[in-house]
Amino acid sequence: MSTPSFVIAARITPRPGIDRVDPAKYFSGAAVRQAALDAETAGAAFVLLDDDLDTAPAAGPAAGRLSALQTAAWLGPQTSSIAVVPTLRTTHTEPFLMGTESASLDWATHGRAGVLFAPSLGADAAANVGRRATPSADPAWAETADVIDVVRRLWDSWEADAEIRDQATGRFVDRSKLHYVDFSGTDSASEEFTVKGPSIVPRPTQGHLPVFVEHAPDAPLEALRGAVEQADVVLLPAESVGPEAVKVLDWNPSACVLAVIDADADALDPEIVARWVQVGVSGVVLETGPYDVELAVRAAAGVVPELVGTDESPDEQSTLRARLGLPPAENRYANA
């Protein structure tokens, strides 16, 4: 397998206090689609679409947002090479549904999708959903690790070749290739939760979608350890990426570590990037907001041309796993 080039991606969600969105364009999806197409033109690997179940942060007159997962699915048929990575919040949404929605997103994008898992730590998210109390960071992140675990099991619960269409016996599937997950985990209120399975969605196109977790300011990195161990991609803030990358790669040596950096800052210079690469950082996520995405991605690529390589137009069939250099996903239940 060839080493993938330095990853450049864009976070296209409006930045609170910076981007002012025009509601007429924003809520029709038009601005997000344009941002994704601009990122695609500039050669970005994926776009991040943030989401939460709390009150939306103010961005212009409309402090609103759309479901990121559905926006990502909607972008699928309207884009050709860029991948989409929406956030799913693990605290209030049913784990079973996170499994089916994410698998379906992979089908909807022909394998050009990942998913970023994070807890909802706010009281307003708890009040909106009304099922569970506001959690604190440690148990909420521990639950996130359990949710990632059960979602991965749900993806595995159909083996890739379960559909047989065997006319002789009249069977559409070989049920020995479908698996109950019988998962038991601990939620953010220290109570047990269970999921029976199998999924109702066949194994995703990529087997497993790349699983992202991000270290945000609302919790210490240590709280994320279980989730980091389950993740494929770990996003770290640029300011502390050096020391944090060392820890993350100690916990999970095969993680793809990306630095998250404000696209407006001039911080991305070749020397800094060279130092990041030395500690194992594989790329950057530019916080661009929905506007001027193409310019920002091209500017970043210009800083590190020798790392980015010349592959301007990736294979349209290429999955996000392939673009991130992740190995094929194994199935824990196959040949078991």
């Binding site: 909607w74 379906s104 909807a108 159909w158 049920r175």
Partner: peptide, 24 residues
């Protein structure tokens, strides 16, 4: 007590696939 294997089974999440169809 066993998964019913004679019909078409497995389908995508309703809202995810409808969102994709909306885009086409």
């Amino acid at each position: 007590g066993k998964i019913y294997d004679l019909d078409v089974m497995g389908r995508p999440d309703t809202l995810t696939v409808l969102s994709a169809v909306a885009g086409a």
